[in-house]
Design a protein around this nucleic acid. Structure first.
Lengths: 334, 334
DNA sequence: TTGAAAGCGCTAACAT
DNA sequence: ATGTTAGCGCTTTCAA
C-alpha cells in the first residue's frame, strides 16, 4: 500500500546528489536557482515525503513534547493544554497521552523519553515517587504542572495550594461564618495539592482561633458522587457547616446537588466554594464560586521553561508558583 | 546531559557482536544461555535503552496510532478514547493531539502519518474534504469516528444520527406533543452529524403529519451560551415548543438554564432532550434525558478495524453504524 | 549459534 | 555550489 520514495529517488530524478536535495529541503545552504527548481519539481512529481524517523535519528531530536494526563475527562486540563500548545509555538509538536493514574501506564509512556520518541515530557499528576522522577530527570527533560510531587526536584509549575485554601477559608470566617467544612480526597488517593489545601484550611481555622472538627472534613474521591454524599453527611450534622470548601469544582457541583436534595440552597442556606474554575462553574445552577487556577499561564510557563532547558541542555529543578484568584459567583459570597 | 549508550557499547561490554545483542533484545532466535546472561548484565550495567527511532527506521513501523480531537474540552471524546485505548490492547501506543478544529492544524498533525511517525490516524471530527481524506487513505491508514465526512470513503464508525433524532422526536410527538423545537448548529459550523440530526427531526415531523416551523429551529454554535439563548428565544414565542431536542448535552444544559431564567422548569413545563450522554447529564439539575452514543464501543470498533487493516496491509472503506439508545432522566419523559 | 556487513533514509563534514 | 561519503543505532541477511 505504501509507495516509498526516498531522497535518493528525488536526487536521481532531479539529476543532483542527495546532499543537494537535503539542502533544498532544509534550506541549509546556498543552492543554485535552477537546481532548487529541479529538486522541487522532482519532489512534487514523486510525491516525496522526508522520512522524519531518519531525520530524527540523525539529528538526535524529535521536536515532540509529550504531555501525560491522569485522565481524559477532567476539563481543568484543557486550559493547561491550551497554554502548553501556545507556548510550544509550533516549534514543538505536543502529543498527549493518558496514564489513567496507573503507575505502570505512566512508566510505559515515559518510555517514549528513553526511547527517543520525544524530547521532553510534562506530567500533570504523577504516580511516581520523587526519587523516581529525579532519576528520569538525570537523563531527560521532564517537568510537572499543576500537581507537584513531594521530594522531587523537577521543574514544577503550580499555584500555592495551601495559601489559596487558606485565603478562601479565611474569607468565609471573616464574613462571619465560624463553621466551615472541607470536602477533599481520602488518604489512599491523596495528591499533594489536596494535602496542601487541607493544610491551608487548618491554618485558616487556627489563625482565627477556631479549632478543627473532624466532622467537618469529608474525605472521599474526586467524583461528583462524593460531593453529593458529603453534602448529605454535612446536612445531617447537629451543628452543620455554614460554608464548605471543596478541592475541585466537580465536588462542589456534587455538594450543591446533595444539599439541594435536602432542600438546602447553596449560596443562600449554605456557601459552597470549589477549586480550579472549570467551565462547569458557569453552567451550573447556582453558578459556582471557586478558587481559580491560572491554567493557561501554568501551561505556557512550564513549556517555555522546558524548551529553554532543552535548548541550553541544562536542568533547572525550580518550582514556580503562579498566583491564584477567587472568582465569586452564586454559590458563595466571600 | 544525555548519556548515550548504544547497542555497540553493550556488545563490547558483553564481549559479543551487536547482532547477538539485538537477538537477545528481540528474542528473535536462539542464543546461548551464557551469552544471554552476559548481554543482560551489560544492558543493566550500562543502563542501555534501545533507540526506538532507529528501530522504527529499520522496521518501517512505529506501533503508534494518532488520534486527532477537534477540542480538548468535549467530554464526550473521553469515552471514545477509553474504547480506543482498550482496543489497542497495549499493542499500539495511542497518542492524542488536538486540531482545535483548524484545518491547518489538522494537516500538520496528519503530517505525522506521512512523516512516518505513526502507523495510523483516527480523526474525531475532520475539517478536510472527502477528497482530501481519500487522498490520505491512498497511502496511509486513516479512519473517522463519531463524525463522518461527506463523500469520503474511509473506515468510519458512528451512529445513525438521522435515525436517532427521528426516534427522539417521534417519541415526543407520540407522547402528545405537537410542537417540538430543535437546537442545532449554524450553517458555517455545521457538521454532518448535526445535518443528519436535522434531517431526522424534519422526517419525524413529516411522518406524523406535522409541518416544520422555522421559528422552532435554533441555529447557533455548540456552546452552553447558545443553548441559553435558544431557550430565551423559544420561551418568547407566541406558540412556544413543548419539547426541544438539542444536538449536544451542553446545549441541552444551556437550554435548561435559559428556560429556568424565565421561570420555566425543564421536565415539567418543557421537555428537553440532549445528545451524546456525557457525564454532565447526571450532574445537572434536572438530570438530562439524552440520546446516548455508545462512545466506548465506537472507539473500540474503529481501532480494532484499523489495526486489522494495518496488519493485512489493506484498505477497507466501510462505514459501521452502531446502535444508539435513549436514556430517560428528569429533563424529559419520552 | 554467532559475527560481519549491508542497509533503513537522512544529514553533515569534507573535498572538489 | 555541489558531490562523495561516513555515519545516526538498529535489524537482518549471509557466511562461517
Amino acid at each position: 500500500m505504501f509507495v516509498n520514495v526516498t531522497i535518493k529517488d528525488v536526487a536521481k530524478a532531479a539529476g543532483v546528489s542527495v546532499a543537494t536535495v537535503s539542502r533544498v529541503i532544509n534550506g541549509s545552504c546556498a543552492v543554485t536557482e535552477e537546481k532548487v527548481k529541479a529538486v522541487r519539481e522532482a519532489i512534487q512529481d514523486l510525491g516525496f515525503n522526508p522520512n522524519q524517523m531518519a531525520h530524527n535519528l540523525r539529528k538526535r531530536e524529535t521536536k515532540n513534547i509529550l504531555v501525560i494526563l491522569p485522565s481524559t475527562d477532567h476539563s481543568f486540563y484543557s486550559e493547561i493544554l491550551r497554554g502548553i500548545e501556545d507556548g510550544a509555538n509550533h516549534e514543538y509538536d505536543i502529543i498527549i497521552s493518558t496514564s489513567h493514574s496507573f503507575l505502570h501506564t505512566e512508566i510505559r509512556l515515559l518510555a517514549m523519553l528513553t526511547n527517543h520518541l520525544v524530547d521532553a515530557a510534562i506530567i500533570l499528576g504523577s504516580r511516581l515517587s520523587g526519587a523516581q522522577l529525579d532519576e528520569y530527570a538525570r537523563h531527560h527533560h521532564i517537568a510537572l504542572c499543576s500537581e507537584g510531587v513531594e521530594d522531587s526536584h523537577l521543574l514544577t509549575v503550580l499555584i500555592d495550594n495551601e495559601k489559596a485554601a487558606l485565603e478562601a477559608v479565611d474569607r468565609f470566617i471573616k464574613s462571619g461564618i465560624n463553621r466551615v467544612g472541607l470536602i477533599t480526597t481520602g488518604m489512599e488517593i491523596s495528591a499533594p495539592s489536596s494535602d496542601n489545601r487541607l493544610k491551608g484550611y487548618l491554618k485558616a481555622l487556627d489563625y482565627n482561633g477556631l479549632k478543627a472538627d473532624t466532622e467537618l472534613i469529608w474525605r472521599g474521591d474526586y467524583s461528583f458522587g462524593s460531593g453529593v454524599k458529603a453534602a448529605h453527611h454535612f446536612s445531617a450534622l447537629r451543628q452543620p457547616p455554614q460554608a464548605v470548601l471543596c478541592v475541585s469544582d466537580t465536588l462542589a457541583a456534587g455538594a450543591i446537588k446533595g444539599y439541594s436534595q435536602k432542600g438546602i440552597k447553596a449560596g443562600k442556606d449554605v456557601q459552597i466554594c470549589g477549586f480550579d474554575n472549570i467551565p462547569l462553574c458557569d453552567m451550573y445552577s447556582p453558578t459556582i464560586t471557586t478558587v481559580s487556577q491560572p491554567g493557561y499561564e501554568m501551561g505556557k510557563t512550564v513549556i517555555e521553561h522546558i524548551i529553554k532547558d532543552i535548548k541550553n541542555d541544562i536542568y533547572t529543578g525550580e518550582t514556580i508558583m503562579l498566583a491564584h484568584s477567587i472568582v465569586i459567583r452564586e454559590s458563595a459570597v466571600l
